[in-house]
Each structure stands twice: as structure tokens, then as C-alpha cells.
């Protein structure tokens, strides 16, 4: 603390934070309201900022007219597995990149960074062909494998930053005690880096949870579709079903919101660990 906050700065802080909160939350509020209006009434003027009658018809429709429950399970499964495996694999590669000096290290890092610059559309055709040959079209395993590959580069770059902030001495002491490098990594380093790893995992999870494009291309049957595909399905050629889409959107956002509520401290903490120590 340098000095006490003046009344003026305190007021401006409150005003600024309130405006940010309102602007951020309003769209969320608006989808909730839209989802609770009875089908048809969303086109009534003047607009209702609170539905005259709360209707759960849109939500009921999701589960009776479509397999939304199944899609949620699929999304949860695919995103959890892919995010977990990707985080584990990235942990290993990030460790190597952070701890060893070897020729080609720059090239590896560059190759990871380059993946962030490639527009996905270039790779789509050949990727589809490859998945066909592997017999992995319309398969959750196939989607998981691709998601893992998509997550690894950024996750590695992120985790590498965290490793660099943990002194070598830690695992060296462990290795002198007879641990192998791998067990030193998991027994000594991982616990210290937990917030950073959690942040990386959440980042991966959110990306997989939201991914639309690959999922639409590769998944066919209801047993395998993920939520974003269902969302896109509410746009038919002559109708956009805003009510159902809003209901589905609310159900999609809620789990991530819950994760954030629990983990927002983690995320900042984790990233802090990875950032500059002054």
C-alpha cells in the first residue's frame, strides 16, 4: 500500500468496474431472457426485458426434440479427455524445452508457434481424407486425437514459461535422492506448478468445448455430435430458432461459468507464476 485511495479514485474505480460488469453480463442476461420467452413471443414489440410469462418450453424442447443431453455428455467427454491428455503431453515437451539446451530447440518452438498462424481451412481436406483412411470419421476417438494435436502447441508454450520460473535445484535435489527424471517431474515439479497446470488445462478444455468447425465436419451421428454442432443446427434454411438456440447457449455457457467461478483465482495465480517475477 502506498497511500490510501482517495475518494475520487475510489468512486471512479467503482463506476468503471460497474460499467464493465454491466456490459459484460448484459449479453448473458439477454440470452437467458430470450431462452425463457415462449416460442413466438420473442417477436413481440415493445421488447420485454423480463418475460411476461416464464416459459421453459425451449429447454424442454431441447431434450425432447433433440438429443441435447447426449451432445452434452459427448462434449464433456471429448473436452475432458482431450484437455487432460494434451496437458500431460505438453508438460513433457514443455519440460524438455525449458530445461535443456539443444540444437533444434528454436526450430521446435518455432514450429509450435507457426501452428497458431495457420488458418484451419487449408488443412481441412487432407485431414478429412486421412481420418477416412484411419476409419476415424464420426468417432469420438478421432475428434479427441485431433483436439489433442490442436491444443499441444499453445499449451506447451504456456507451460514452458511456468517451468522456467521453477528453479532447477528442486528437481536436482530429488534426482540426487534417487528419483528418475520422470518421477522428479511429477513428484516435485508438478505440485509446485499446479496453478499453472490448472490454467493450461482450463484453457484447453474451453477450446475443445467450444470447437465447432472440425466437429461439424467430422461428426455425423447423434451419438457422436458435440454441442456446437447442435447450436449450428438451429439455423435451418428458412428459420433461425433463436429460442432453442438461446436455451442451448445458456446450457453451454453455464458449465464453463461454473468452472470459472471456482478457478478464476487459479487462472490468475497460474498465469502469474508463468509471468515475470520482478
Amino acid at each position: 500500500m502506498i497511500n490510501k485511495e482517495s475518494v475520487l479514485s475510489r468512486t471512479s474505480k467503482i463506476i468503471f468496474l460497474s460499467i464493465c460488469l454491466i456490459v459484460t453480463v448484459f449479453p448473458l442476461y439477454w440470452i437467458v431472457i430470450t431462452s425463457l420467452k415462449a416460442p413466438g413471443t420473442i417477436y413481440s414489440l415493445p421488447l420485454d426485458y423480463w418475460p411476461k410469462e416464464i416459459s421453459f418450453e425451449n429447454y424442454i424442447g431441447l431434450f425432447t426434440k433433440s438429443d441435447f443431453g447426449q451432445y452434452m455428455i459427448n462434449s464433456l467427454l471429448v473436452a475432458t479427455v482431450a484437455a487432460t491428455v494434451a496437458t500431460l503431453i505438453s508438460l513433457l515437451s514443455a519440460y524438455v524445452l525449458a530445461r535443456f539446451q539443444f540444437s533444434g530447440r528454436g526450430a521446435v518452438l518455432g514450429a509450435f508457434l507457426l501452428t497458431q498462424m495457420i488458418p484451419g481451412f487449408i488443412a481441412l481436406g487432407p485431414l478429412y481424407m486421412m481420418m477416412t483412411n484411419f476409419d476415424l470419421v464420426d468417432s469420438k476417438t478421432g475428434l479427441i486425437l485431433i483436439y489433442i494435436a490442436v491444443c499441444i502447441p499453445f499449451c506447451t508454450i504456456m507451460l514452458r514459461g511456468f517451468f522456467e520460473n521453477v528453479p532447477d535445484a528442486l528437481e536436482e535435489a530429488a534426482m540426487i535422492d534417487g528419483c528418475s527424471r520422470l518421477s522428479a517431474l511429477f513428484r516435485v515439479l508438478v505440485p509446485v506448478m499446479m496453478p499453472g497446470i490448472a490454467a493450461s488445462f482450463i484453457f484447453n478444455f474451453v477450446n475443445c468445448w467450444n470447437e465447432l468447425f472440425l466437429s461439424v465436419t467430422l461428426m455425423n451421428s447423434d451419438e457422436n455430435k458435440t454441442i456446437p454442432t447442435a447450436l449450428a443446427g438451429f439455423i435451418s434454411s428458412f428459420n433461425i430458432d433463436w429460442g432453442s438456440m438461446s436455451a442451448a447457449a445458456v446450457l453451454t455457457v453455464v458449465p464453463t461459468l461454473v468452472i470459472f467461478a471456482f478457478a478464476s483465482k487459479f487462472i490468475v495465480q497460474g498465469l502469474t507464476a508463468g509471468a515475470v517475477k520482478g
Partner: peptide
């Protein structure tokens, strides 16, 4: 029955036909 979202359906059908499977 495979029911892709109509926006991208024809593109998906192209991919499927080109791959010759499924």
C-alpha cells in the same frame, strides 16, 4: 441418417463424396 447443419451441409457432402467412404 446423417443430418449436418444446413449451412455447411453441401460442403460436408462434398468431403464425404470425395473421400468415397461413409
Amino acid at each position: 441418417l446423417i443430418s449436418p447443419p444446413t449451412d455447411s451441409a453441401d460442403q460436408k457432402i462434398q468431403q464425404m463424396l470425395q473421400s468415397g467412404k461413409g
